[in-house]
Structures are given as C-alpha cells and as structure tokens.
C-alpha cells in the first residue's frame, strides 16, 4: 500500500510523486485493459472453437449441410443439414416478433405516457418480472398448460380462417409452431417493451407540450412527437428481441414436435429450431453427432451475431439513445 504522498514546495518531491503514480498505475491499467481484451478474445474463441469442432463433422457429412432437411448425424453414413432447422428458427422468431412488437409498444406507451405517474415505475417493474422468469419455467408452463389450451383457438382458426395458407392443414395440434411462437413472444416482450419505454421517455418534452398546446389529442401528440422520435429505437429493440427469440432453447425444445419438415402450416404438428434440436439431440449424439450440433450452433451464432450487430448499429447511431442501449 502506498502511503499518501507529502508534497513539499521543492521540485524533486513533486517529481517523485509523479513517478510513484505511474508505478502504481501501470499494473492496474494493464489489468483493466487486459480484462477488456479477454472479453474480445472470448468472442473470437467462441467462433474459432465452434469452427474447429464443426469441420470434422461437416467433412463426414454425406449430404449438403446448407440444403439438406433431415438430421441423422448419428447414422453410419451421416446425413444432416441445417435447412429445416434454420427455417423453423426464422419462422418461429418472426411470428413471435409479429405477436410481441405491437403489444410491447403498447405496454411501453402505457408506462411512458398513459399510466398514472406514481404507478408507472411499479407497473414497469411488473413487466420486467416477465423477463425474470427462467425459460425452463416457461417451457413447463407451455407444455402443461398452453399446449392443451391452444387446441381450442387453433381449431377455431383452422375452421374459420383455414383459407389463409398459414392456418390451413388437416391435423391441428397443440404442440405447433404457433404455440412455440406464442411462448417466444411472451419471453421477448419485456425486452422490447423495456427499450421502447426508455426511448419514448426520452422523446423531447418541448415537442410533446407544443403538440398538446396546438390542440392535439393525446394520441395525435404521440403520433407526431413520440413515435417518429422513437421509431429507430423500437426497430432496434425488435431486432434485439428477434435475436433473443432465435437463441431461445429450452422453452421451445419442450414445445416443438421436433420434425424435420419445412411447412408453413403453423397449426400442424411441424416445427423445430436449431437451439431446440441441440437440446433434444445432445443426449444421444455420437462424436459426429456432437460435431453436427456444434455446426448448427455455429450457424445460430452467426445469425444472432448479425441481427444483434445490426440492432446495436441502429442504437449507436443516435446519441440520445445512449441510456436505452444499456
């Protein structure tokens, strides 16, 4: 421990203090810079080691990884491809986004502009609690409650809106793409709502008051002053939600029927995702099987990386959003 430096009027003492500063500072600066570099190294290592373990499995593959639909990496002649899994991942996440974004924007507006001031932060906390529920609990809830429950609404949709290709199909089940997307939507809703809320709260007060002073109703004020300001923030929030939905594993692993078929019939017994397949297939995977799962994980990593980087790029471009991005 360095003792406090006593400064005298003479020059040499001051120089000694400066010397001591640099000597204590060096290691600490080094350690903190090093920690930051370690973080970068981890990100690089994730990509590197996934590639290293994926390549042997990809070489053993007897089919084309990007276009093949089936997933039989444990067979003596391994055949596997990301096609159906990537399709399921993208479709379920986009559906979840479609369901969650309007609700989340509504929730954000409710907390930022509609709820009574005193209640607003408490109500915001209630929505944040949705994010605190572990994903395995959503999975348990989904598979025991939502799956049987969804049979009714799904049959209704099929009966009356069956002419829409999405809702068509012969067999209607609870364990469907729609149920999985609904669970995903619930899980990403608090993320989108939290960021949108922060952005809406930062909308310029002057413009809001000006709009009201000109006789705008509350909705007109929001449409002219809040939403245009918040649009990029909401878009990037939705993209962060999309990334989260794509990587979500356990909840959907319990709900998806784990088929390897590309089908737009979201009420039928089809559906799977990259992450769900990893959770379900890991137990009985052989060495090639593990490599194949790692290869699929690499694809997932790259997709989410792109989505997240795009979202961060939009947020980072606007300095006003600095707080919301945290």
């Amino acid at each position: 421990m360095a003792t406090p430096t006593r400064t005298t009027e003479s020059g040499p003492a001051l120089r000694r203090s400066a010397f001591r500063r640099s000597r204590g500072d060096g290691p600490f600066r080094f350690a903190s810079t090093g920690a930051g570099v370690v973080l970068l190294a981890i990100m690089a290592a994730i990509g590197l080691f996934l590639v290293v373990k994926a390549v042997p499995a990809l070489q053993a593959n007897t089919s084309h990884f990007l276009t093949e639909l089936t997933w039989q990496p444990n067979a003596t002649k391994p055949v596997f491809g990301i096609g159906a899994l990537a399709f399921g991942t993208v479709l379920s996440s986009l559906l979840a986004l479609l369901i969650a974004t309007p609700v989340a924007v509504g929730v954000a507006l409710f907390i930022s502009h509609y709820a009574p001031r005193r209640l607003a932060s408490a109500l915001g906390y209630v929505v944040d609690l949705l994010a605190a529920v572990p994903s395995v609990v959503y999975g348990l809830w989904g598979v025991t409650f939502l799956v049987p429950f969804m049979l009714g609404p799904s049959t209704f949709l099929n009966d009356y809106f069956g002419w829409i290709p999405l809702f068509s199909g012969e067999s209607i089940v609870g364990k469907s793409m729609l149920t999985a997307s609904l669970v995903l939507a619930i899980m990403i809703l608090p993320i989108i709502a939290a960021i949108s809320r922060e952005v809406f709260l930062q909308a310029p007060k002057m413009q809001e008051e000006a709009a009201l002073a000109l006789g705008a109703t509350r909705w007109e004020m929001i449409r002219t002053a809040v939403l245009p300001f918040g649009r990029p923030g909401v878009i990037s929030a939705a993209m962060l939600g999309l990334g989260r939905a794509m990587g979500e594993t356990i909840a959907v692993a319990l709900i998806f029927p784990a088929t390897f078929k590309i089908s737009f019939q979201i009420l039928g017994p089809y559906g799977n995702s990259i992450a769900a397949n990893i959770a379900n297939g890991f137990g009985e995977a052989t060495e090639v099987g593990r490599g194949a799962l790692i290869a699929s994980g690499l694809v997932l990593f790259l997709i989410t990386l792109l989505v997240n980087m795009a979202a961060r790029f939009i947020i980072a471009r606007r300095k006003e959003y600095a707080r919301a991005a945290a």
Partner: peptide
C-alpha cells in the same frame, strides 16, 4: 480499442445461452 470492446460487449449480450454452452463443450 474501447469502442471496439464496448461494441462487442453489446454483441456478447446477445450470444444465445446454448451457444455459450456449445463453446465450452467444444473448447
């Protein structure tokens, strides 16, 4: 360097949990 680290910390927030598991499995 600090801008790069800051950006990748944000990106790291979005790494799916299953991918971090796969990374430790692989490495």
């Amino acid at each position: 360097l600090s801008r790069i680290i800051s950006f990748f910390v944000d990106v790291m927030t979005g790494v799916p949990s299953v991918v971090s598991g796969l990374f430790v499995l692989a490495f």
